[in-house]
């Protein structure tokens, strides 16, 4: 799909930055697979109990909603790691050289601040409030704090990803070789990357990391932006 993906130098894949991020991607990826799978089965079970057993399950609705909260928030963290969140690239496409990296550091810091201030701090306050005050869910009797735990957890993951990106930017500013394939410089392409459903390019599913063979991946500054 993407034209002319530049391949990451093989040596870079041994770099701790690449390995740590791959490991987190892998674990988060499988976690999302399980959440999605359970969500589908859960709703099918709801249909089944209503039509076949004529005894509608009392918990499926609530479980479905809480699974969506988790899929949404943890998925948002995963998508942040893939830089798949849509942004306007009016400014960045006009930048060249080192300014691109300084811009990336700025955006990473802003996003990290939100993830830290609202998702982690606000989330921890919310979780502790829910546990402290003992609020439970109606059907499952689940502590609401467990549901809300997804906020600080995914916030921390987003902080992690953007820290990794900032470290990588600093490395590039110091002239070191690239270690991450995800610093795609166009949002349009980053978006196609995740939105693409009939992917032609043989990119590596995160699910076989770590351990599997490393992917041919685009490096920073590879494809030219479509504008």
């Amino acid at each position: 799909m993407r034209s002319d993906p530049t391949v990451l130098p093989p040596a870079s894949r041994d770099h701790p930055l690449y390995r740590v991020k791959s490991a987190v991607d892998w674990a988060l990826g499988w976690f999302l697979v399980i959440l999605m799978g359970v969500a589908v089965v859960n709703v099918l079970w709801q249909v089944f109990t209503r039509f076949v057993l004529s005894d509608p399950s009392a918990f499926t609705d609530e479980l479905a909603r809480y699974l969506l909260v988790w899929v949404g928030l943890f998925g948002a963290a995963y998508a942040s790691g893939k830089r798949a969140h849509l942004a306007i690239d009016l400014l960045r496409t006009r930048l060249t050289g080192r300014a691109v990296h300084w811009h990336g550091i700025f955006v990473g810091a802003v996003v990290g601040l939100f993830a830290l201030g609202v998702m982690v701090v606000g989330g921890v306050r919310l979780v502790s409030l829910s546990f402290l005050l003992g609020q439970t869910s109606a059907a499952l009797g689940l502590p609401l704090g467990v549901v809300y735990l997804a906020l600080p957890a995914s916030g921390a993951l987003i902080v992690f990803y953007f820290t990794v990106f900032i470290v990588e930017r600093v490395r590039r500013l110091r002239g070191l070789p690239p270690t991450l394939p995800v610093l795609l410089e166009t949002t349009a392409e980053a978006y196609v990357e995740t939105a693409d459903t009939a992917r032609v390019s043989p990119d590596e599913p995160d699910l076989t990391h770590p351990g599997g063979p490393p992917p041919p991946a685009p490096a920073d500054g590879g494809p030219s932006p479509p504008r």
Binding site: P56, A58, D61, E62, A138, A139
Partner: peptide, 27 residues
Amino acid sequence: MGQKIRVQESATAMDMVRSLGGSPTPI
């Protein structure tokens, strides 16, 4: 008997409809 009755999201309401013989359905 065998009637699907919408209840609020409340364990008490579900228990009550079940005790009366209906199928409580939270919607």
